[in-house]
Write a protein that binds this DNA or RNA. Structure first.
Lengths: 167, 167
DNA sequence: TCGTACGATACGAGAACCGTAGCATCTATT
DNA sequence: AATAGATGCTACGGTTCTCGTATCGTACGA
């Protein structure tokens, strides 16, 4: 919950810190890979590509938005997004609407009808997580929630930096 | 570090637990999306596809293995893996070797030469993580490391279940 | 020795990606 | 008000990817 500041520590604490830090990054990388593979299986079962559900998630989270806004946020090519949105629309995951304010623009809105279906695919991971979370105290859970939220933010920042800077 | 057992709790604790649990899953999903997009940018910058580095990671982690073993572990189609390994080999990320024991088999080995180059792409995310981790105590870091490791395992289990069962 | 199973890749049809062009529309400038 | 340029989205097309199937070499049980 309340992270301590890392002012001065004895060498033992510093060593533990270094070890855990490395372990965290290591597990994070593996977690990323596993979630990607899980996502691949689920996407394929709905006749979608890997990035499609990523986009759908962004649409759900950041409200109705335009294809170009989605392209900026994801770093994907605008023309690629046409294909992604075509598939998502064909599968009735989203709806394309016209923007009354700007008639060039299209507004992409997430449809929730198929959410339960998608939820069922995640049931395995979900119940595994429930079992795992049961081992932690409310305080610990809040620590974890906060950490994950901040890490997700860091990921967004890192992606943005890569998209902007050509490096 | 030492998770408490969730035997009996008052309603307040239960409510906190439920809220945090939901927040954790929510952030995990967002984290997954952000890391996928980050991975996409990095892969593209090396002329690779999204899943290529996922495979490379599995190869690095689970030692030299055969294409079919990799297919089983990742749930990807064997023919698709030929293409993935072609790209990884062309980029000198892996080497294909013959198995002296079974002359049909090929052994895929990760090459480490380009690791620094890859590491540089992750520098942004890496330093962001360092800044973030500095806010936690050694005990808290160990809690986080353990949680992530167990979550990654859960992800692997869920993927396996989806690959096996046709659901 | 033979038949079957298995590992890896070749092949090809269909699809995806993305650079570019095109069209419609908006906005700033004069 | 008129025009030039910018912007939003999608069509088009070349290159590349995916994945079902076929193929070839090898292993192994009968």
């Amino acid at each position: 919950m309340t992270p301590t500041t890392a002012g001065d520590e004895d060498s033992d604490a510093r060593r533990r810190r270094r070890r855990s830090g490395a372990a965290i990054k290591e597990s994070m990388r593996e977690l990323s890979v596993q979630l990607s593979l899980l996502n691949h299986q689920i996407s394929a079962s709905f006749d979608l590509r890997d990035t499609d559900f990523d986009c759908l998630d962004v649409i759900k989270r950041h409200g109705p938005l335009t294809p170009s806004g989605l392209a900026r946020r994801t770093g994907l090519h605008a023309a690629t997004l046409t294909g992604i949105l075509d598939r998502l629309e064909r599968g009735e995951w989203i709806a394309r609407e016209r923007d009354p304010a700007d008639r060039r623009a299209v507004i992409v809105r997430a449809r929730r009808e198929r959410n339960p279906e998608l939820f069922r695919k995640f049931a395995g991971m979900n119940s595994a997580m429930d079992g795992l979370l049961a081992d932690y105290s409310p305080d610990q859970l809040e620590l974890l929630a906060d950490f994950l939220r901040r890490t997700a933010d860091a990921g967004r920042g890192a992606t943005d930096a890569l998209v902007r800077g050509a490096d």
